[in-house]
């Protein structure tokens, strides 16, 4: 483990991953119980990526997320109450119930949206990074996308332009081995998406996405580089999705074996990090227990808030289609 990392950072990384894990487990249950409508794409298994990257970003930095976006939102500062309210379709949600799981966003937290379109995020993040450079701020824009999205033209165009203009942009590929239900070996000829970085003239880095410290350190370098004005990086995090593409057990498809899932669970990012923290005496078993208890308390409050919140009304239907008011 890197020497210059404070115990506070380690504790925060752990808490962040636990909050994501517990939120997602609960959201999955609520969806299966029919309390949350629509489709949820859950982040369980990939927590180390969001936690490790977001540890280097402030609210002023921007991210674009994916359809599997709850983890990014939580790591970027999202609160459970407005998140659950959004999933429930309530007017107190982050998007007043108009976006739902796939479009959770909050401009104040620098979240330029989860995105229902695979590959939708990279061009937007590149645009935000262009804006950061144009406005001469030190903000960095990070785009999260999967191995599936790395085959979309939008990713390639955004990567080329970010490198061309040397934008403060970081491309974080969460390679979870599947584009929806199609295995990586069936959707691209490369093993490492990071290899593609060379085609755009930017560094490509591969890290173990199940190791939060590895992600933390690689993200630190990429984000520092971007912030210093030295251009973008493609950071590929090899990770795994424990749940199905949609929901928990989704449609019960047999595209992978339980043995494969279990093998990845043996390398679970949270469990292995907890073992390290215990060994180093950063956390005790009791303190770890408290982290889960606090997350569960947050969930309880969030779900109660969502359930007691009102649905949007007919008056809200046509609001926010356009900006209405004094133009600048």
């Amino acid at each position: 483990m890197a020497k210059n990392i404070t115990n506070k950072t380690l504790i925060d990384l752990h808490a962040c991953m636990v909050r994501i894990r517990r939120f997602e487990e609960e959201a999955g249950k609520l969806m299966e119980d029919g309390k949350i409508p629509g489709a949820l794409h859950l982040y369980v298994g990939q927590e180390a990526v969001a936690a490790g990257v977001m540890a280097h970003l402030s609210n002023k930095d921007q991210i674009t997320s994916t359809h599997r976006g709850h983890g990014h939102v939580i790591a970027k500062g999202g609160q459970f109450s407005p998140m659950f309210a959004e999933l429930y379709g309530k007017s107190t949600g982050y998007c007043k119930g108009k976006g739902g799981s796939m479009h959770i966003s909050n401009m104040a937290l620098g979240i330029l949206g989860a995105n229902g379109i695979v590959g939708g995020g990279p061009p937007i993040a590149m645009g935000a990074a262009f804006s950061n450079k144009f406005r001469k701020t030190k903000q960095v824009a990070v785009t999260f996308f999967g191995d599936g999205a790395s085959n979309e033209g939008s990713f390639h165009e955004a990567a080329n332009m970010a490198a061309l203009y040397q934008l403060p942009c970081v491309f974080v590929c969460e390679n979870n081995g599947f584009g929806e239900y199609t295995r990586q070996t069936n959707h691209q000829a490369v093993t490492d998406v990071a290899d593609r970085a060379a085609g755009y003239g930017m560094p490509g880095v591969v890290v173990d996405g199940m190791d939060v410290m590895a992600v933390y350190e690689a993200a630190e370098a990429a984000i520092k580089r971007a912030r210093a004005g030295d251009g973008p990086t493609l950071l590929e995090c090899k990770t795994y999705r424990y749940y199905d593409h949609v929901g928990v057990r989704g449609m019960g498809l047999t595209y992978r074996t339980d043995e494969e899932v279990d093998a990845w669970k043996q390398r679970d990012a949270i469990n292995s990090f907890e073992a390290v923290l215990l060994k180093q005496g950063v956390l005790t078993a009791k303190k770890i227990e408290n982290v889960y208890a606090r997350a569960d308390e947050e969930i309880k409050e969030g779900v109660a808030f969502a359930e007691s919140s009102p649905f949007p009304t007919e008056e809200d239907l046509l609001e926010d289609v356009y900006f209405v008011g004094a133009t600048s």
Binding site: L112, P122, P123, I124, F130, N132, R135, G153, E157, A158
Partner: peptide, 14 residues
């Protein structure tokens, strides 16, 4: 795609 994306991302951020 990049050009319109640039416009969207830049417009959303000032």
């Amino acid at each position: 795609k990049g050009i319109i994306g640039l416009g969207v991302g830049a417009a959303a951020t000032g």
